[in-house]
């Protein structure tokens, strides 16, 4: 069935958007900063994995793990060394700074790894599962897409458990809900925020590594994907973690459906922007997004 294939592809694409959107929302919830370098951090993570696996010759799983760890540490340092300095400055200063940081990452990556597309081997890359063979046709599922979905489910579950049940995870929630009160509890808020940047960077790196076999090759511009992921975060309510993943899924599935079922000309032009059409509609109907957490302070 073609529809199942399209849906699986859409869900997989949506999971990637959702994971990047998670990265946006984690940082936004903790600091009210919007990190427009999110996609470029993902790109750096992908190139780190590429360097380890394709150039240094590490096995895939080890290269991926080290790449994720490096990207996480990088996110931590980025906050501790750069973003922490402009706390208290107006919102636009943060936006411009992160956009600038993203540009720097892109051009540095272009200088180090070149602008040509690269790739690294994934053990399951290019594998397909064929089911339901009969006269009406068959369903061919890309293992890379299934791996994205599985990886996202596991990662989201792990993040949920971490934020819900560990002391530092609850402290992260506390810091993002009421920063001053968190300080008064003795929670080292600055360290906690850097840690959240680290988690956010590691999550986008995971998204990138899962994405790599699906798109086969990538170059330093792969981070532009994050613009669509940003729309996903807004659809979800920008501040809701389940909302971010759901927003990603909505956009991913719509894109694939538009791609497959709209007549020729329209498929090419509408599919890439279908996420933004949904964004417009959602903002008109529910300006706070689908899952906004709104808290009115009692007087």
């Amino acid at each position: 069935m073609e529809l199942i294939q399209v849906l699986v592809a859409g869900i997989a694409q949506g999971c990637v958007y959702g994971l990047i959107a998670l990265g946006f929302v984690l940082i936004y919830k903790a600091t009210e900063q919007v990190n427009f370098a999110q996609g470029d951090i993902m790109m750096l993570g992908m190139f780190a994995a590429f360097t380890l696996i394709a150039i240094a010759g590490f096995p895939w799983w080890l290269g991926a793990l080290i790449g994720i760890a490096i990207t996480g540490v990088f996110g931590f340092i980025l906050d501790a060394a750069v973003l922490r300095r402009i706390i208290g400055q107006p919102q636009f200063a943060v936006i411009i700074l992160t956009i600038a940081v993203g540009f720097i990452f892109r051009s540095v990556a272009g200088g180090v790894w070149g602008a040509d597309p690269v790739s690294f081997d994934t053990p399951y890359g290019g594998m397909v599962i064929t089911i339901d063979e009969n006269e009406t046709g068959r369903t061919v599922l890309d293992v890379a897409e299934l791996a994205i979905i599985l990886g996202t489910v596991v990662l989201v579950g792990a993040l949920y458990a971490f934020f819900r049940f560990t002391r530092i995870g609850v402290a992260m929630q506390a810091s993002s809900q009421n920063q001053l009160a968190a300080y008064y509890m003795g929670i080292p808020v600055k360290y906690v925020i850097s840690l959240i940047w680290g988690i956010s960077a590691a999550v986008s790196c995971i998204a990138g590594i899962l994405l790599a076999p699906k798109i086969a090759t990538f170059d330093p511009d792969v981070g532009f994907l994050a613009i669509t992921a940003f729309a996903a975060a807004v659809i979800g309510g920008f501040g809701s973690l389940p909302g971010a993943v759901l927003g990603g899924l909505i956009i991913g599935i719509t894109e694939q459906l538009a791609q497959a079922y709209l007549p020729g000309e329209y498929a090419r032009s509408i599919a890439p922007i279908s996420g933004f059409i949904i964004l417009l509609v959602v903002l008109l109907i529910r300006p706070d997004g689908l899952f906004a957490q709104i808290q009115r302070k009692k007087v």
Partner: peptide
Amino acid sequence: DWVARRGIAHVPEGREVFPFLTVRENLLM
């Protein structure tokens, strides 16, 4: 946060709770 860990607990005005955590989680924080 350093001062708090030293043994001074500041209860600010305006009931600064962690609104989305449970009462128990607030206390454990």
